[in-house]
Design a protein around this nucleic acid. Structure first.
Lengths: 352, 352
DNA sequence: CTGAAAGCGCTTACAG
DNA sequence: CTGAAAGCGCTTACAG
C-alpha cells in the first residue's frame, strides 16, 4: 500500500524535524532515544524519518561527533606474497561481521602508497576516515606497524609481536603448534630424519615455527638427523627446497613446511621426482586457509583460526575505541591439528 | 635530521594557515593549487603543512564538498555460497588499485543487514558514506541490485544483467566461452556424450553457460547423447551430480561443469568411483580463480579475468561519479581457455 | 526541563 | 584580484 517512492534527493534531519514541527536538535535527540524527548515526539519523529527515508549523513555526524563510524583493515603491501587470498578473506569476514553488529563501516586500506610520503594507513588514521585499525602484518621489521601502534591511535594487531609488547594483539602459539605437528610426525608416524623449510626469517611466524620444530627434534634427540632450510612461504620456495636437496633428499623421511603453500610446492616437486608421499616421505604444512584440502594427497596441517582471530581483534578494537576494558594486551587462540593423508594418516571423508 | 615528532593532536587547516599568516580559505586554495594563490604563498603553505603533518579531515571535506571520497564494494549476502574467496579477492584487488590511484577509500559493505529494514548497501549510499558502488552480485532475482542501479546513484555492476539493460556493467561472454570449452572437448578430444552440470538457474552466469553448452552440442549434432543436470556452483553439487548418475555414468565421456568448484567435487567423486580422468571421462570447469590448478589432474577451465573486470568497472564508476564519458553501458572482456590435464591435454609445466 | 545557538573542518561563493 | 563569510548536516553544550 505505502508505495512511497524513495526520494532521490537527500533528506536532511531538518526535513524530518520540519515535518514533525520540532527543531533539528530535538529530532536528533529523538532518534537517539534521549530521555529528554517525550515518547510522543519520539514516535512522531521516527515515523517522519521512515516516511521520508531519512538516513543520517555520515559526514555531518562524523564531523560533529569526531567519530568516523568506520574502522580500517590494513593490508600491508607484502600481503600478496606472504599471505594468501583465503587468509585475507577470512580476516575480512571476521572484521566485517563484528563491525556490522556495531553499525560501523569497514575500510580496506592497501599500503603501497609510498608516493605520498606517508604510509597509506597512517593517512587513513590521520584523516579521521577511520576510528581505529586492524593490522595484519607480519614482518618484524615493519616500522610502520610500530609507529602506528605507538601513535596512540586505536590499533589491534593480528599476529605475534614480541617487539611491540605494549600493543594489543591477537595471535596463536606458533611455537607450540609447530612443535605439536612435528611431534605428530615423530610419535605417530615414526619419522626420525626431519627437514624443516622455514618462512622468511624477518617474519615472526617463521621464527616461531622454526623454534617449535627445533624444540621437537631436540626433545626427541633427532637434532643430528634433522636440517633446516630457509624458504619464504611461497610455493616456489617449497619446490626449490626439495629440488635443492638433490641426492641428500633420501636422507629425510619427513618434511615440516612452515606453511601450506610451500608444502604444496614441495609435494609437487616430490611427485616429479617419483618420491611418494606419504610412503617415502611424510609432509605437513601450516595454516589450512584452503589449499591444503584440495591437493592429492591432502596436506596435514595446523588450522589457524583466521576468522576468529579477526573477530576477537575487532572486538578488542572497539573496546579501545570506546576507551573501556583494558584487558590483556595479547591474546592467544587455540589451533587445531588437521590430519589428512600427507603425513601418513588414513584418508578421511571429505572435510568441508 | 628533521626529527619532527608527529603531532598526536589533530592539525587543522587553520593551524597551517596561522603558521603561514594567511586565512584557512587561502591555505585551502594553496593546497588545491588554485591559480588565485601566488607561488610564494603556495610554497609556504605546503611547507607548513608538511612541517605540521597536516592531513585533511575527511569529514570536513566530505561535508563541504558533498563528496565522500570513498567508493563501496558491495558483497551480496549470497557471495559466500556462489563465489569463492579468491574471486572476491581478485575483485577487491582490482577495485583497490584503481581507487588508490584516485586517492579514494574503499568501503567493503556486506549485505545481510536486513535487520535494519534497508539493504546495507542502500544505507551506505544514502548516508553518503560512498560516492558510488561496485556491485558484484549474480542472482537475477536480486531486486536490491535493480533498485540500487535505478536509483540514480552511480553504480557499476560486474557481470551480465540483461534485465537491467540501462545499467552500466562489465562482464564476459559466458555463452561464447562455455560453447568454446565444450567444443574443445568435442573437437580436440573427440568426446561425443556430454553432461553439463549447471549453476543455480536464478544466476545469469548459470543460464548463459548452459546456453553455450547446448549450442555446442546442437551444432555438433550431439544433443541426443547429452544431458543437463542442475547444480548450484558448490563442490557438493558437483559430487552429487556425478554420484546421482549411478550406472548412467558410463553413458558419458565428458562433463562440462559450470564452475571449478563443482568440477572439483565431480573429480573427487569420479576418483572415488574408480573412474579415471581424463582417460575415461574428460572434465572441464569454469572460472580459474585458484582451485583448478591445485588439483590432480589440473582442471581445464575458462579463466575469468576478475581483477581486470573490477579495474574496468571501477574506472567506469569514476566516470559516472565525475559525470563524464557516458560510454557503452555494457562492456565485455575477453576470456582465456586454460588447458590443463582434466580434459586430456598434456600436462604443462607449472602455470603460476 | 526545553529551546535554539554554536561549532566540528573544510571549501565555495560572495562581497569588496 | 583578494579577503573573509557562509554553510555543508549534524549533535553537544549552553542559555533560558
Amino acid at each position: 500500500m505505502s508505495d512511497n517512492t524513495q526520494p532521490r534527493t537527500r533528506v536532511r534531519l531538518r526535513d524530518v524535524a520540519d515535518l514533525v514541527g520540532v527543531t533539528a536538535a530535538a529530532a536528533s535527540m529523538a532518534l537517539a532515544d534521549s530521555p529528554r524527548i517525550s515518547d510522543k515526539t519520539k514516535r512522531a519523529v521516527r515515523a517522519a524519518a521512515t516516511q521520508l527515508g531519512y538516513v543520517p549523513s555520515s559526514a555531518g555526524r562524523a564531523l560533529r561527533s569526531q567519530r568516523a563510524g568506520a574502522i580500517a583493515l590494513i593490508v600491508p603491501n607484502t600481503t600478496q606474497h606472504v599471505f594468501g587470498h583465503s587468509y585475507f578473506m577470512h580476516v575480512l569476514t571476521g572484521v566485517s561481521s563484528v563491525a556490522n553488529e556495531r553499525d560501523t563501516q569497514v575500510l580496506v586500506s592497501t599500503n603501497p602508497d609510498e608516493a605520498h610520503g606517508l604510509a597509506a594507513y597512517e593517512r587513513v588514521m590521520r584523516s579521521k576516515s577511520a576510528d581505529g585499525a586492524i593490522v595484519t602484518s607480519a614482518a618484524v621489521t615493519d616500522l610502520n606497524v610500530e609507529r602506528l601502534s605507538q601513535s596512540g591511535l586505536p590499533v589491534v594487531l593480528i599476529g605475534n609481536f614480541p617487539y611491540l609488547s605494549t600493543s594489543v594483539s591477537v595471535g596463536i602459539d606458533d611455537v607450540g603448534a609447530s612443535r605439536s605437528i612435528t611431534e605428530h610426525l615423530i610419535e605417530v608416524h615414526g619419522r626420525t630424519r626431519l627437514l624443516h623449510v622455514t618462512g622468511p626469517m624477518d617474519h615472526q611466524t617463521a621464527i616461531d615455527r622454526r623454534e617449535g620444530f627445533l624444540a621437537a627434534v631436540a626433545a626427541h634427540d633427532l637434532a643430528d638427523a634433522s636440517r633446516v632450510v630457509e624458504g619464504d612461504f611461497s610455493e616456489e620456495a617449497g619446490r626449490d627446497a626439495v629440488l635443492g636437496l638433490g641426492r641428500d633428499l633420501t636422507g629425510f623421511d619427513g618434511i615440516v613446511f612452515a606453511n601450506d603453500d610451500m608444502a604444496f610446492g614441495g609435494l609437487r616437486a616430490l611427485k616429479s621426482l617419483g618420491v611418494s608421499v606419504p610412503q617415502d616421505i611424510s609432509i605437513v604444512g601450516f595454516d589450512d586457509f584452503g589449499l591444503s584440502r584440495l591437493t592429492t594427497p591432502g596436506i596435514t596441517t595446523v588450522r589457524v583460526p583466521a576468522e576468529r582471530m579477526a573477530r576477537v581483534a575487532t572486538e578488542r578494537l572497539f573496546d579501545l575505541i570506546e576507551g573501556s576494558k583494558p584487558g590483556p594486551s595479547h591474546q592467544e587462540l587455540a589451533v587445531t591439528l588437521v590430519l589428512r593423508e600427507s603425513c601418513g594418516c588414513e584418508s578421511k571423508a571429505d572435510d568441508a
